[in-house]
Design a protein around this nucleic acid. Sequence first.
DNA 1: AGGTCAGTTTGCAACGTGGCATGCCACGTT
DNA 2: AACGTGGCATGCCACGTTGCAAACTGACCT
Lengths: 329, 329
Amino acid sequence: MNPKLRDVAEHAGVSVRTVSNVVNGFRYVAPATRERVQASIDVLGYRPNLAARTLRQGRTGLVALVIPEIDSPYFAELAARTVRVAGARGLTVLIDQTDGDAEREKELLHGKRSQLVDGVLFSPWAVAPAELAARTDPVPLVLLGEHDGTAGVDHVAIDNVVAAREATAHLLASGRRRVAALGIQPRSLNATARQRLAGYRQALAEAGLPADPALEVPVGRLHRADGHRAMLRLLDADHPPDAVFCFTDELALGALRAAADRGVAVPEALALVGFDDIEDGRYSVPALTTVSPDKDRIAELALDRLARPEPAAPRSIVAPHHLEVRETS
Amino acid sequence: MNPKLRDVAEHAGVSVRTVSNVVNGFRYVAPATRERVQASIDVLGYRPNLAARTLRQGRTGLVALVIPEIDSPYFAELAARTVRVAGARGLTVLIDQTDGDAEREKELLHGKRSQLVDGVLFSPWAVAPAELAARTDPVPLVLLGEHDGTAGVDHVAIDNVVAAREATAHLLASGRRRVAALGIQPRSLNATARQRLAGYRQALAEAGLPADPALEVPVGRLHRADGHRAMLRLLDADHPPDAVFCFTDELALGALRAAADRGVAVPEALALVGFDDIEDGRYSVPALTTVSPDKDRIAELALDRLARPEPAAPRSIVAPHHLEVRETS
DNA sequence: AGGTCAGTTTGCAACGTGGCATGCCACGTT
DNA sequence: AACGTGGCATGCCACGTTGCAAACTGACCT
């Protein structure tokens, strides 16, 4: 059994309360006492029991990060930054992986981790806005990435519509005329994909181009395999595009591989823009042009929001982004 | 304030203990009672306080996963699998990121998370074996990937020496004669790098080739940028290699990019083998030949080991791996 | 009738900690 | 001499839960 305050107290010949005072750096402890108690702590190897402390003071120092998949590079990078920022603030991050499963998301939304965490950073995939609005769990929640605006919930995200418009406009500016959008989620409530599609269409409209349904390409999920498959189909079809705006870098990397499979030169015959600025895209051949969200800022803003002392009115916070032009465009 | 057992008990007109029995699925609760209590739970929105539960029963249901960087794809993939396997066993994973910092690793090793977690999965980077041996913290620990064998600690890893030998032999089998090893960690205690180097040398020796110090290439860390930099130097030097065994896929992807920068054809003029089988390598152009550790198995074995009821004698468990031959060799 | 037993419900105590209020002492002030 | 003050140490209690053991019920058996 681990030593407890009682054991330390007996060893040092003081009361339990005094040991607690030493542990918590209470002001009025005589230096001699403090020293003696500290010595006992060291000798016995005492460590505060976090469960008891938590029970007593009602806070855990834990934050849940709920994401679809930790091994998707964008989420991995976001998680890494979140853990780092949280650590600097004395918080520990606990990861929940939903695999995009609506049931799992619902559970977590409605407090499956309640009482265990001081806050939840939630990156939804499948869950409906109504579900968010119906939330009664008192633990603070900040939505990451989803930005649909209907539910009265805090969220932090970049402006997906603007970013998508910029990315598409960038492709159009280089003279491309058949620009596809790859990453549409037909059966999903995913707001992000919808916003990126909207931005894409805006850019086309501004360039006086009609939206061509054949160029709005749906995918199952947003992985390399999906991008690869979809791109092969596009390239094998009658009128292949001369550029593709991919809703994620993973899709784009899959598409890039498909172009290589078909011997299509990138960027000469086919330009690509991705989204997320994952590390992989910097070293792909050719290197991937992409929309780069400021992930550090997202993590900081989200944790700021969680740390607010009292329940404030829900806010939408927009994180910065920029277009990182590399070799695929 | 959240409702507690007391509140539910009053609402349902039963004792606190009975509510607890319902919550925990205790056998001997009359169906009618159970139903009534459940109704009260639903009405009040009761959720068990995990801190109190933890305090009472001494277990938290949390497992710490201590890794250098969550956004390194290998660790991201390992983390994803760990979270999944843990979830299936009713455990939650908490991520600690050390950034390879020895101090941070030491803290965590010696129980910074003690009392908060039921076990620690530890993937060390900088920490010395002596530090491991000196560990007194009673929380079960399983080492991942490090396999130096001196410290009396559980660990799970693939056989790095054999894997490295196979990878190198594979390159030699295709007629390559100047095979470099990329990923040596000169200033680090990292056992993994040493084992992979040993395997590489074994393969050379078996082929009757001398070890050439110029072909044993050190790097700072194991990222794409390091592989890129080191490969550029190799290619720009007098006698560039005709094959490279990279100690991680990330290094290999950086090297691949360097080859593209210098117009060196892969695999014709330069063959590459990586290590880790990360998703990126499947979609790179050309796709990366790599040593594939069975990450699912590693996660399972490690959690098995953590779950052992009583302190057993420390064991080294070897997880399976295989060589995944793709296009770079 | 008394005994046994499975099923059901309950009260008490304890997990280890920190908030609170209070006690105690030495010293300086009125 | 009485009083006030600041520094220091302490005891009691509650946080919400579950283990334990006991108690009660009715049915069934001897």
